[in-house]
């Protein structure tokens, strides 16, 4: 019995590791994922901007939370996605894992940039300044540079294998930064407020504000998955152009 389970896992791994299978399967998912993510993001934005109650202390500027929090969460989770893909690629030498890893880098960099930017814009009316060298903000800036590092390393080598390996190692080393970002608001109690939503214990946000926030978080998760798949598909085309199935695509 165990052997058949192992065999099943192996077969699944092998199939999922095949760029062709990935390209064809995700091709079927993309339209649904696109509709779901756009729907959730539009719904959540209208809800958050127009219908969620005003914040007692921050007034309307707090409405930036509905984009700032989901984007920041995904900027961090996206780093784990990139590092996990890098680890899988290093250990099991699975081609598609390398492609997912380098596809996660520009996406993560863009989200980290947006997290810093929306936070900075929110900071002006709330803290009175666009930028402070607060622990949370500084560690997010380091996250941005780590993503940029992976993007640069990926383009720095003529050998594909070397580039992938270097990216995987930098991704893995950089994971040390993620728990620092996460705990920074508790370790160094400076300007940035602590987490609004907690998995354990009560959240410090009004339910009428929490609902649209959850819609936005789900929407951004779907959007992340969508763009990661799109990026991976172009990476597959760029690397597998010699194979007959890719050549057959344009015919």
């Amino acid at each position: 019995m165990w052997q058949s389970i192992l065999k099943f896992i192996q077969k699944w791994f092998h199939r999922f590791g095949s760029p062709r299978w990935f390209y064809q399967t995700t091709g079927k998912w993309l339209p649904y994922l696109a509709v779901i993510s756009v729907g959730l993001l539009v719904l959540g934005s209208i809800w958050g901007l127009g219908f969620a109650p005003q914040d007692a202390r921050q007034g309307n500027s707090y409405r930036i939370i509905f984009i700032h929090v989901p984007i920041s969460v995904l900027a961090m989770i996206g780093y784990y996605v990139m590092a996990a893909a890098g680890a899988v690629a290093l250990i099991w030498k699975i081609k598609i894992a390398n492609m997912v890893m380098v596809s996660a880098a520009p996406l993560g960099a863009a989200l980290t940039f947006l997290a810093l930017l929306t936070g900075s814009i929110w900071g002006k009316p709330t803290w009175g300044t666009y930028w402070v060298w607060d622990a949370r903000i500084t560690s997010m800036l380091i996250l941005f540079f780590l993503y940029l590092g992976v993007i640069a390393l990926n383009q720095a080598f003529t050998s594909r294998d070397t580039a992938y390996k270097a990216c995987a190692i930098l991704s893995l080393v950089g994971t040390v930064n993620i728990p620092i970002i996460y705990k920074s608001v508790d370790w160094w109690y400076t300007l940035h407020q602590p987490a609004t939503i907690k998995l354990t214990g009560a959240s410090s946000i009004h339910p009428d504000m929490l609902k649209p926030l959850i819609v936005m978080i789900l929407g951004f998760y779907c959007f992340y998955a969508l763009v990661l798949m799109l990026n991976t598909r172009t990476e597959i085309l760029a690397r597998e152009w010699r194979s007959s199935w890719v050549r057959g695509l344009s015919q």
Binding site: G59, N60, R63, I64, K124
Partner: peptide, 12 residues
Amino acid sequence: MSGHGVYVWTAY
């Protein structure tokens, strides 16, 4: 947005 419109709309 009672004075915060510039910030909110720029961010969005």
